[in-house]
Structure formats: C-alpha cells, structure tokens
Write a protein that binds this DNA or RNA. Structure first.
Length: 937
RNA sequence: GCGGGUGUGGUGAAAUUGGUAGACACGCUAGAUUUAGGAUCUAGUGCUUCACGGCGUGGGGGUUCGAGUCCCUUCACCCGCACCA
C-alpha cells in the first residue's frame, strides 16, 4: 500500500464537510479557545502559496488546542466589499456582487483543498445584507453616542441632551469639535429641532463636517491616512491632493489615549505595538498663548519644549492657519498671498519630496512674549502643519534644528539659552546635560525642573497650560464609491437623520454605471430605486424617484475597514437574525485568543477595530475592551521572479551568464517554465507568448539560464505559484508541512519549490512504518525503551516548540523522530498512535487516514494529546566539560547520582592518564554542579 | 533623523538558562539496488591542509575557564514613521 495522498485527502475533506466535524458550539464544558485569521479579500487572481501561510499556522494552533481539550472556535469568511471589484465593474459593467461571488467560490475551492478545520457554518461576507445590516446598526450606535471626558467613556447622546436641557453645555466635558458653540439651558430649550441636531453633531462619535480630506481624483474618492503610501494611493498608486469636503468622520481621537494605554495589556509583538504607538503619536508639552500686537485674538502654539520659551525669536504659522489672513500687514499681503498660492498648488507628494528646501514668508505682524513682552515676528512656513497641534509653532532656533535652519536661512535672531553650549553649527536639542540661561525665572534650571516651573507659571499667569497632543486624527468615514455599505442616513434641511433601525438593512441599490454622476455626486446618486427592506418600504425616504423626493438619502458609502472592524464578534453568533450577536455567545467566546494576520494592517484594521470594540464596550454591547489578546504576524512569502535579457533595441535574448557588457532589458517570464537549475524551457516560452516565436536566443552550454530576483508575488510579475498545483503533485499535507518548514513563521521568505521533496519523503517514510513492503506492519508488542525515548522526546520538543510558535523546528523534530524509528524498525502501535495525534495538526488527512486504519471510529481531531512521560527519556549520564587552568578541556560523561567527592575521584583518575597533566597531580579541582569541572594545575 | 528587526555552509535554516556551532532539509559527490513514472538505501559534504593541525556565526574590541548567545563599538540590509513643533 502506497501513500496515496490524492485519494486520502479527497476522502477526508468530504468526510469533514459532510460530518461538520469542526462545527463549534457554545454548549460545552470545555474551556474555549478562539483562533482567528484575518479574513481575505476575495480577489480575482485566486490564492497563491503565500496566502495560506498564516491559515496553516493558525489551523495548526486550532487543531492542537482541540487535542489539548479546548472547545475551539475557528471561523473563516470574506472581506468582500472593496475597490478592485468596483474597478472591474467600471471596466466591464459586471455587477460587483457577481464578480465577488465568483471569486469567493474560487477561494472556497482552494481553501477546501488544504484541509483547514474551519467552521463554515459561521462564514461571514461583509457585502451580504444580512451582515452589513449590523455594520449599519453599529454606525447608528456611534451616531447616537458621544464621548464623556469625566467618565472617560462613550455614552448615549440622550444623556447629553438631558444635561443640555438642565444646564446647557458650559460644564459638559466631552470630546467635541473645537467650533462647538457655548449655550445655557434656556438657549438650548428654545433651539429648534434642526438647530439642536446641528449642535449635537459636534458631539456625536460619528459626525458630519467639512474637513480637509485626501482626495484621489483617479479613484474618485477620499482616502484615509493609512490608505496613502508615500503620497500616493495604496491601491493603484494614484496621486492624492487635499480637498475640503463635507464628510462623515469617526471620533477616533477621543479614544487616542485608551488605544495607547491598553496596548500594555496585549500580547502583541513589540513591532506591532510600536507601530500603533507611533501612529497615535502622543506628545506631552504645553499650549502657550501669545498676544498679537494690534490684534484682539491670541496666537496659540503647542510645544513639547515649553522650557525653552525664553529662546523664542520668531513664530511660524502653517500657511492654512486661520489667523494668517487676519494679521498679515498691508505691505506683506502680496508676498503672503503669493506664498500661500504656491504651497496650495503642491501635491502631498511634492511637499514630501522636498523636505530639505526651506521656504517661508514674513506676515508683517508681531506677537508679544508672554513673559518678557518682547516683540516676536510672525512668519508662515511650509514646515508647519495645519493638522498637528494648533498649526502654529514658537520657534526656538537654539533648541530645534528646523527652527535653526529657518532662522539661518532668513537671517532671524538666535538666542542661545543653553549655558556653555556651542550652537554655531546647529541646535542643541537634547533634553539632558544642560542648564538654561538668558531664561528669566528659569535661569540655571535643567530640563525637568524648568518644565515643571514653566507650566506652573503659564497656568498661574493664564497664558498657557500643560497639555497632551496626539498625532492620531479622526477617521474619515465617507467614500464616494458604490461597492460598500450604504450609510443609513437621510437629510432634512441638510441635517442628517438616522434611518429607523427597523429599516435596516438599507440595501445597495442597483445602478447602471459605477461612476460618479454628471453633477459630481457619488455613484449612488444614479440609483433610481433603493432596495430597502421590502416590508419597510414606506418608511424609507427615497432620494430620486421623480421630483417629489422629500428627503435625500446619504449617497456616500462606508470605507473598507467598516465591515472588518467587528467581524470577529459576528463569528461568535454568525447566523443570528435578531441581533448583531447574542449576548450569550458573546459572553461565552469573549475575545480572540489567537489572531493571525499580516502586519500591514497595524495602523488600519487593527486600530479601527480596537476603536469600535471600545465603543461597543462603553455602550455595554460587549464585555471585552480588547478583542484580540494575542496577535501573530506571519511573514510574507515572496516570489522568485525569473528574467530573460533582451539586448536593447533587438529581438535577441542572451542567457544570464552572457550578459556581460551588453545593454539589456530584463523581462519577466513565467516561473513555471523554469526548472530548479534556472534553465528556461524555450519551447514553452514560445508557446506562452507569440512574440518569442521569432526571437533569437543566445545560449550558454546549450541552455538558456534565467536571472532571478525575489519580489512580491503577483500575477503581473509571472512569479505566482498556485497552491493547487502543489496539492496535485505532493498533496495538501506536504504543502502544509513544507510551508511551515520554510522558516520562522514571522519572517518574510521567498518561495522555492525545490526543497519540498524532503517533506514529502518524510510522509512517505512515516507511511512505511505502517506498511512494510505493502503489508500492514503495526504490532501490539511492548515497545523498546529506545523507541519510547524517541516518542517522549518528540512529544516534549513538539509541545515546547508549538508554544513558541516555532513550527519549522516542529517539522524537523518529526523528521528526526521518524528517521530514528525507521532505523529501529519500530512498528509498535503504542509508539505510532500517539505520534499520529502529535502530527495531525500538521498533516491532518494523513493522520486521519492512518488513525482510521488503526481501528478508530472517531476523528483523530479530538483525540487527547499524548501524555509526556519524563521518566522515559531521562539520561543516566551527564556531560561535564573539564578545563585545565581554564584552557584545555575534554568532556566526561558521568553518572547522574554521583556526589561531588565521587566526581573528584573520577576526575583525579582520568587526569592522571591524560596528556594534559603529564602525570602531575592537580592542585585544585573546582566543581560547579551541573556546569563545569575546572582543574587548577 | 526616530523606532523595530535581521546578519550563521552552495541554499532554507537549527542551537531553553553562555557549554562539542551548522541539527533537520534541499543541493552536491560516490556507491548499492531497482530500473520506469518523479523510487529506495548506504556513505560523505563549513573553509583550509597530503596530513598533524589551523580558521570559522557581518567587522573590531571586552567580560568569562568557555560567547552565535552577554556588554561596548562599527558596518550592511529589511520594515514602519517622518519638516509632528
């Protein structure tokens, strides 16, 4: 009987599916364990071998936990709203729902071939109305909430209204827009309905406002900060500009501090935590108010170095700062306007590209120093951002390099406030090893005491206060797209009103073209008829059936991250039709114990989803303030691209070794046409693309050798390896083990099929322990001590390595184990059976089959984990390194039960005959128990 | 510039607390057996030397009887953030 992986894998995949072997249930006395993968976006290209890497690792964890006696929840689904399906729809007119379904089916087929133990009864699709009705529901929950700073949590907006009715908003401490008007109870109570709604918008956790957004003209939509990479859109690499638009936003900033603080309790990698910390960007400092000469308003700046306030020699405002227009003097007007125009014309990318050149212009106005009363010129400069702090800085050239450079460039004064420090070459920006001078009441102080003193004085003199600033911005939530969740809102006199919950889901209407309308409205503006819930038709206002429309609906859709911000909770009760998830299920599964996914989501999904969880926590919908206790980032599997070299301007291709001084253009060729020795199959190439039929190939040793380069796997680079092919040739179990064997799970690594035979051979070898020369060879005889030792060593090593997530060494351990058992010709049932359980998370089909052949009727998936027995592997002897005067040495194998005196005696005897001592007696023998024997001669 | 990470054979990589560096696998070299379907088995394989030996974990220095592992310093590469006040 040979190892027929194709038959075996097909059989068990069908069996698991029909028996629903991995269906999870809340009715269990076992402890729960929730293993989650980041659900995929089902792209048209299908899966390549890189995608399953994380799924395999998490599946091993899930299966391992089942053996350990946990009730495991291991779901999977699809993040099925997104740009590519819509772009495809624009090109082809094909409805995104249709492409999405096709892609999902393809994904499912591929996933099913790899033997994952998913509970498919809990599948979610973010683009399915039965799912996104609850995404819309959560949106409404955020809309109906505000952030109470006294309680430091979100509360229902109804509570806020009650307070307004009683006492107005003067005493209300809440996270709200800076331009929120102040009113008392009497004023509130006479506001009309719309006015009240306007006020409340300043408080709601999801709100509508005019904001400067990242506009991507090519995609025709707004992008979030994390969707922009190096100044261009993450998807497609299109340029991005600034634009003011009326947009939905989420008050992410309200949670900045909690998102930062709660990181401490999470078992995430340092890299991941650092990325989030960085993104949140907390900085402690002070706001300082400067009076402006001949102007009623004050100029407020944020600084992390209020201790250097006596070194201020000028101020800089962001070009967009609202004060600029008000304070600019008549004779500077032209210069300022010209400068602003120049800056506004630059794209983000251009602005980022030349960070070195210094630009700015004087406004003609002066501020007054709060402590010295000195006149300080006010400049504007590009290096100051409107969006950070107050959009204005106090410039201290002696303590900040940028201020220094700016001062030198424009010939502004530099006040050295650091005693004895040379600042002729650059600023002194350390926070240590200095004392202040020329600094009034801070004279002679160091950083720490100056900080305390200056903040005290600022607050005492009412010209500033200590404060904390975050880099984290509120999240813009509107997208001018079709293929996303409709926002369940309509407008009355331009004031947004939520749809009643009973109207959810507000379904995506069909439209003819997936492009903005002629008036520039989002694609949804084309909808003639909205597909709302049939039973609720009357309640839903329609936006454009003839011209009798009363209430227009919101035409923007939600961003990609909406659906993925809560799906982990939906899995707990995925089929619930009445609630977003039932409390019973939520309380049972609590949170994710093991979350596997890519680190590219560090500042996107992983931040937004924590935010939503915290809001839902505050509002009492979940009882976990963090949803993912542990996250592991799998590395990326890279492609090993192949290139041929075309002589420039010709149709001649030279083999890699003959390129020499030729000017050549490397051209990608499909990696499937290249063998392990980098030799290209020219016949295949000519069939692959007609162009090559008549090309000339210059060979070396009668072969065409390609160049190789490691790149991201992608269709356009022809370096994609399809897992289906691997499953056909070697089987899913081999693929699973090989992907784990490739290297540490968190490391990026290029794919290389060459090594896969080693893993495949291992399975065949293991099979042969069961079938010796085609005959079943398993015996019931008592095992040899040697075999027992190997078994228990393996149990121990694999257990420890699984805890360390060192999957690659687990595979090696299995190989060593089987090599040794083969050498011993071991076929004992009592050895092989526990090994199958141990191996089954890695090679589930293989183990399930042999488990059945051993006579079991229950799935191996729930077989108890083998018990480790230390007594089976305890060594009788131990190694003792022996050194002479700390120089030379040899190793003694000594019995464990020896005492110190016994050891000394043996060492004496040994050393007498040793060359090292040449017969002389050692002066002293030092024995460190369990470590070393040091002999002093 | 700031933060995080990685440097070990021809290749992917191992090496709990410092204790025989290179396990395991690929590849390669011999040989055996069998020859059909990507077969199996045995031996060898860090570099260097005919050999004894010497040298070896990016470089330099240190601690230690002993360092891939700890400390200092330096270089290279990767990732994230970045005129963030």
């Amino acid at each position: 009987m040979n190892y027929n992986f194709q038959e075996i894998e097909k059989k068990w995949q069908a069996h698991w599916a029909s028996q629903k072997t991995f269906r999870a249930s809340e009715n269990s006395d076992l402890p729960k364990y929730y293993v989650l993968d980041m659900f995929p976006y089902p792209s048209g290209a299908g899966l390549h071998v890189g995608h399953p890497l994380g799924y395999i690792a998490s599946d091993i964890i899930a299966r391992h936990r089942r053996h350990l006696g946990f009730n495991v929840l291991h779901p999977q689904g699809y993040d099925s709203f997104g740009l590519p399906a819509e772009q495809y729809a624009i090109q082809t007119g094909q409805h995104p729902a249709k492409t999405t379904t096709t892609n999902i089916n393809r994904y499912r087929e591929q996933l099913d071939r790899m033997g994952f133990s998913f509970d498919w009864d809990r599948e979610v699709r973010t683009s399915d109305p039965s799912y996104y009705r609850w995404t819309q529901w959560i949106f409404l929950k955020l809309f109906e909430s505000y952030y109470d700073l006294d309680a430091d949590k979100a509360k229902p907006i109804a509570a806020l209204i009650l307070r307004f009715e009683k006492e107005g908003n003067k005493k209300v401490k809440a996270h709200c827009d800076p331009e929120t008007p102040v009113f008392d109870a009497a004023q509130w109570n006479v506001f009309d309905l719309l006015e009240k709604q306007k006020v409340l918008l300043h408080y709601r956790l999801t709100y509508l406002s005019f904001t400067e957004v990242n506009w991507c003209p090519a995609l025709g939509t707004v992008l979030a900060n994390d969707e922009i990479v190096n100044g261009v859109s993450e998807r497609g690499g299109h340029p991005v500009t600034k634009k003011k638009m009326r947009q939905w936003s989420m008050r992410l900033g309200a949670y900045a501090n909690r998102l930062l603080e709660d990181l401490n309790d999470l078992d995430w990698s340092d890299a991941l935590k650092e990325m989030q910390k960085n993104w949140i960007g907390k900085s402690v400092g002070a706001n300082i108010y400067f009076k402006i000469e001949n102007h009623p308003e004050k100029l407020e700046v944020f600084t992390t170095r209020p201790d250097t306030v006596f070194g201020v020699s000028y101020m800089t405002l962001a070009p967009e700062h609202t004060l600029v227009k008000k304070i600019t003097s008549v004779d500077q007007q032209k210069a300022v306007e010209g400068y602003i125009e120049k800056v506004a014309g630059k794209s983000d990318r251009e602005r980022q590209a030349d960070v070195k050149s210094i630009s700015g212009v004087f406004t003609g106005a002066h501020a007054l120093h709060p402590f010295t009363g000195q006149r300080i010129p006010i400049w504007i400069g590009e290096y100051v951002f409107a969006g950070y702090g107050t959009g204005a800085v106090m410039a201290v050239p002696s303590g900040d390099q940028r201020d220094f450079d700016f001062a030198i460039h424009f010939g502004l004064p530099i006040i050295n406030i650091f005693k004895g420090k040379d600042i002729s070459q650059g600023a002194f920006s350390d926070k240590e090893n200095f004392v202040l001078t020329h600094s009034g009441f801070l004279e002679g102080m160091d950083y720490k005491s100056a900080m305390e003193k200056v903040i005290y004085e600022l607050e005492y003199q009412k010209c500033g206060e200590g404060t904390v600033n975050f880099r984290l911005r509120d999240a813009i939530f509107s997208r001018q797209r079709y293929w996303g969740e409709p926002i369940p809102m309509y407008f009355k006199n331009d004031i947004p009103i939520p749809l009643p919950e009973a109207c959810l889901p507000l379904k995506l209407p069909d439209i003819e073209k997936y492009l903005p309308t002629e008036e520039g409205k989002p694609p949804l503006g084309r909808a003639k008829k909205w597909a709302w819930d049939e039973a609720q038709q009357e309640v839903v206002p329609n936006n454009r059936i003839d011209h009798q429309t009363v209430f227009p609906l919101e035409l923007n859709t939600m961003p990609g991250w909406a659906g993925s911000s809560w799906y982990f909770n939906r899995y707990m009760d995925a089929q619930n039709k009445k609630e977003w998830a039932g409390q019973e299920a939520l309380k049972y599964w609590k949170n994710v114990d093991f979350y596997m996914g890519g680190s590219e989501h560090a500042t996107g999904h992983l931040l937004y989803s924590r935010f939503w969880q915290k809001v839902l926590f505050d509002l009492g919908h979940v009882d976990q303030k963090e949803y993912a206790k542990k996250i592991v980032n799998q590395g990326m599997i890279l492609g090993n691209s192949a290139f041929i070299y075309r002589k420039k301007g010709t149709h001649t291709y030279v083999s890699k070794g003959l390129v020499g001084d030729n000017v050549v253009e490397p051209i990608h060729v499909d990696v499937s046409m290249v063998n392990a020795q980098d030799e290209l199959d020219l016949d295949e190439l000519k069939q692959w693309q007609q162009d090559f039929q008549h090309a000339e190939f210059v060979l070396e040793n009668k072969k065409y050798i390609v160049g190789r380069e490691v790149e991201k796997m992608s269709k356009s680079k022809y370096n994609v390896v399809n897992p289906d092919e691997i499953c056909d040739t070697y089987g899913a179990d081999t693929l699973r083990m090989y992907e784990m064997f490739l290297g540490p799970i968190e490391q990026d690594k290029p794919w290389n099929t060459a090594g896969i035979s080693g893993v495949h051979n291992f399975l065949k070898k293991f099979w042969r322990l069961f079938y010796h020369q085609n005959d079943w060879s398993v015996t019931d005889t008592p095992p040899q001590t040697e075999s027992l030792k190997i078994l228990h060593q393996t149990i121990k090593k694999v257990s420890v390595d699984l805890d360390r997530l060192s999957f690659n060494t687990c595979v090696s351990t299995f190989m060593i184990c089987i090599n040794e058992l083969t050498a011993l010709k071991c076929s004992n049932k009592s050895i092989l059976e526990p090994l199958l359980v141990l191996l089954s998370p890695f090679a589930p089909h293989f183990c399930e089959e042999l488990w059945e052949r051993l006579g079991h009727t229950q799935s191996i998936a729930f077989a108890p984990y083998p018990v480790y027995d230390a007594s089976k592997i305890i060594e009788k002897t131990k190694k003792y390194p022996v050194s002479f005067n700390g120089k030379m040495r040899f190793t003694l194998h000594l019995s464990l039960d020896l005492g110190v005196e016994d050891i000394k005696e043996i060492v004496m005897k040994e050393t007498q005959t040793s060359d090292q001592l040449k017969g002389a007696a050692p002066k002293k023998i030092i024995i460190v128990p369990g470590k070393i024997i040091n002999i002093v001669v």
